[in-house]
Nucleic acid binder design. Structure first.
Lengths: 205, 205, 205, 205
DNA sequence: ATCTAAGCGAGACGGTACGTCACGTCTTGGG
DNA sequence: CCCAAGACGTGACGTACCGTCTCGCTTAGAT
């Protein structure tokens, strides 16, 4: 069989040099002035690139900013594997909190909230920064279930939102700090539950 | 006599009429095209008002849009008081979810993301739409503690974020529906906890 | 020998098919939207030709438009030779007027105005559409002199401009119709002169 | 009666300062690079004016260039009245030729030929630079008729085009110089006629 | 029967200018 | 003193073409 699903593009190929210059420029502007500073004109002129070239790669400035954030991410510093899935979850939540507490984190959140929700690009963006981590969390959660630390009768989607939701909440509302001690507490409260233990007999409801 | 209590200002009685015309126009534009459609020019012209008049009340278009959202909120349909604080919480979460699931909910999220976080106006906005509800939740939580349904040894701020964070999360990410069954599950999962009961009764592995 | 002044071109020869496709496309665009519509991109895409191919033949879009106009001209419908040079002149002026009155006439004027005046291409263009006719006129004028219908003491260049200038004038200014009756009158006025006859026969004031 | 056909404009009045700055900038650019150099961006930036302000006054760059040319015209240097209408005509033709021989003259011609012919603006432009002079010429021509120097049986419109057409012809075609000796010869040839005097008896035909 | 160099279509490149929109400020005259 | 109206300078928008440059593929004359 031939791999003819990539129909051999005609014409001059896109310049990856231009692409990376654009992303670098966008990253700089993002760092200097936040998402609002990522204008097409600014990006193009700083990248030494024509405006149409930017539009050739991305449909609008939001997409450029998102791409810059996604591409600009530092490589994952893999830490040694924790002993249990619960500990791994705790570690992951701490890492996420640390990253989101940075200016870049604010930018990510801003862009997520401002984006269209239906656009392909914004879906990819949310997936990259949040849902992928949440999916990792799902793996850890299932592992924790197998390890006997988590109840088997719960709705995993709800459980995941219970863990990751509070992070975003603080990030966007800014009503309280977003740090490791917070995520640790979120995890422990979520695990233990808020309800007072009435008695070992009471089945709940 | 009340006829002479406003003798000195020379041209001002129009003010409240202009103000509400502006807000009505902003609300309409919001409904038609989202926050991006709330432009100063659009608002002013639709309200039949000069641009400087708009600037007299609000510093920029974000503020106008926020004010429109805040003012435009339907009056609270007070439902009969639930029997317990827990049930009241459940009811409140349902109500919030219902509102967030509407287009207005998306607009609120967008505005929160776009706003400065430090501005007085945006603080008021976040407070109006989110933190005020969270504060109501704190009251209910304390009541629930007194009623003996909630543990006394928990961090209330964390507990509150555990309840409200997931709603916000789904609002922003749109990865799953934001409805009453979700908030019910959030509440029950948060109360019961995710951890498997390792009670003293538990006999074996 | 003249065969070796073309130094034996290597490689693939130019495609005359491409050339004529380009000119046809340019002619169509000219007809549809005037000279402004003859863009390199438009011509190339309509001709199914790459842009560099167009540039291989002509230096810029003006040249393409000019070439299209020159090539697209209908073949000269040779009418039977008139009895005298004066009548031939009258016929020629009528023909020119007829052509200038068409949309193509306006396009020619536009191109002449837009062109550099010094460029080789624009010289050829002006020559093709105007000066060549004027040169034909010079022949007829000289013939008419020989036939005894035209004075021998006049400046032929001035005389020619006297005949062809008015046509061009109406073409450019559009202040009055450009038709056969006009050119006939131009010719007769030019021949007879505007001045009142102050002949020796004239008896009194 | 009230003069209510000028319905008293509301709002801030147009800044004539901006207007004249725009025209000055356009005039400079015209002098430096011809009509092609009169770009909206260039004009606006050189005039220290926003682009929208330029568009508020004129619909496109052609109009700006035309307005600049019309406004920038040096005041008419009135020369002493000649003894006869014929001499006045000769003087006028010389003056026109002198002006059109300048770079500005080329620009005027270029703009005339490039313009739409139907636009109100371009009509005004042609009128200002050419048809107004031609109208002056009509007055002189009628005066010359009264003075007995010009035939009474001619078509004045044709006669006028016979005088002014050759000027434009040389201006645009550049095939021969456009100077006073040319216009003098045009006038004398037009007056005397090109035809050979067959005999004093022959009435013409 | 190759070889090989130019032409071919396509289309991305860095640019420039377009004409529009909205910003937030300033300037009118009227009430 | 506020009001509506609207012009102001600013600056970004997204588009259209410019003329140049790479691609990989013909194609036809020279070898």
């Amino acid at each position: 069989m031939k791999s003819d699903d990539a129909p051999r593009p005609r014409g001059r190929p896109r310049s990856t040099k231009a692409r990376s210059a654009i992303l670098r420029a966008a990253r700089e502007l993002l760092a200097e002035g936040g998402p609002a500073a990522v204008t097409m004109e600014g990006v193009a002129s700083r990248a030494g690139v024509g405006k149409p070239t930017v539009y050739r790669w991305w449909p609008d400035r939001h997409a450029v900013a998102m791409a810059a954030l996604m591409e600009g991410e530092a490589p994952q510093t893999t830490r040694r594997a924790p002993r249990s899935a619960i500990l791994a979850l705790r570690q992951q939540l701490r890492t996420i909190a640390e990253r989101f507490a940075s200016p870049t984190g604010r930018h990510v959140a801003t862009m997520i909230a401002a984006s269209d929700l239906e656009t392909e690009f914004s879906k990819a963006f949310r997936n990259h920064f949040v849902l992928a981590r949440r999916a990792e969390g799902r793996v850890l959660l299932e592992q924790a279930i197998r390890e006997g630390d988590i109840r088997t009768d719960l709705d995993a989607e709800v459980a995941l939102d219970l863990l990751y939701g509070p992070l975003f909440f603080r990030l966007l509302m800014g009503h309280a700090p977003l740090d490791a001690s917070f995520t640790d507490e979120v995890l422990s409260h979520a695990l233990q539950g808020l309800a007072r233990r009435k008695s070992s007999i009471r089945s709940g409801g």
